[in-house]
Design a protein around this nucleic acid. Sequence first.
DNA 1: AATTCGGGGAC
DNA 2: GTCCCAGAATT
Length: 360
Amino acid sequence: MPINSLFTAQIIDWYRSNKRDLPWRETQDPYKIWLSEIILQQTRVEQGLPYYERFLKAFPNLRDLANASEEQVLKLWQGLGYYSRGRNLLQTAKQVSTHFNGKFPETAEKLQQLTGIGPYTARAIASFAFNEEVAVVDGNVYRVLARVFGIFTEINSSAGKREFQELADALLPPENASEFNQALMEFGALQCTPRPDCHSCPLLGICIAADRDLVSQLPVKSKSKPKRDRHFNYLFYYDSGKILLRKRTHKDIWKNLYEFPLVEQVRATEDPCSVVAEAEVLYDLDLKALEVLDPHAYKHILSHQIIHIRIWPMRGPIPPNESLKSGIFAINLEELEKQYPVPVILHRFLEHIKPYLVSK
DNA sequence: AATTCGGGGAC
DNA sequence: GTCCCAGAATT
């Protein structure tokens, strides 16, 4: 038996006895497949699963989602990260709903034209929902193929992407694309993990990396840039159940999410006066009469940046909404929690601070 | 071709 | 601390 056929057969065999019970595997509805795939981009199954359930409950079908507001979608997306996925989700729902008569295109090539659907997701939907014979390549697939076939090409280079995609396509068994794709990813997620237990691996006999002790070196990936430090000073201006809020609209992290009035500085500030002074200019506020309390400090570590956050509680009457400028507005705390999407760091702060606010 | 977009979990 | 996750869009 050729090595490639053996590999395919073993992977599928392993999958049938080890696969997890996941809701999007029990359907061929392109809407549900699409939704699950967008949620699962760069996201572990365990983290994405509750979001998938909540989205389906809120928007049972494509039209429901297409009729939603971006605020609703982002609120449901809150805490999942990569919020452009949520915005693109809504955009594509509207697009398919109005321009494609509510039907998703049925080939990977056409699916990839839609916003938020790239090479992986297009092939996943085409294969799972429409049985197209196309192979998917995600982080799991890179890892499994690099090890089993001993490939040292960098997986984040264009040459690597091409090479692994071609290999996956060559391995794909016609007639069984969907199951093979699922199997290969599941194998990477459960068995051929970043630090695997090779003793229990059914592919021990054919894996080049295991044979030559290269498992810990594969796959090869070029190093990432060092993180940059940012310093966010938030004005937590609380008064009788209301706080000041603004929407992030610029092209940056947390786009279109809401936050307290922000003063970003190049370095950490111990002195509230400089924060207040900058805020007055930035937002055209009059903060002179205010008392500024000691800040709550957090460090928010992300993939490409470390955000040093100081939330400065302030005491004093909130001006009426009509007199607020620069996109600042006052909002009731319950209203905020119900409707306004915020970064998790703000959500956690609010949960922490709420008991103290109501008891005061 | 390189960078940017989050948050959480494993180690 | 580092690396990775059912990647895609933008520069």
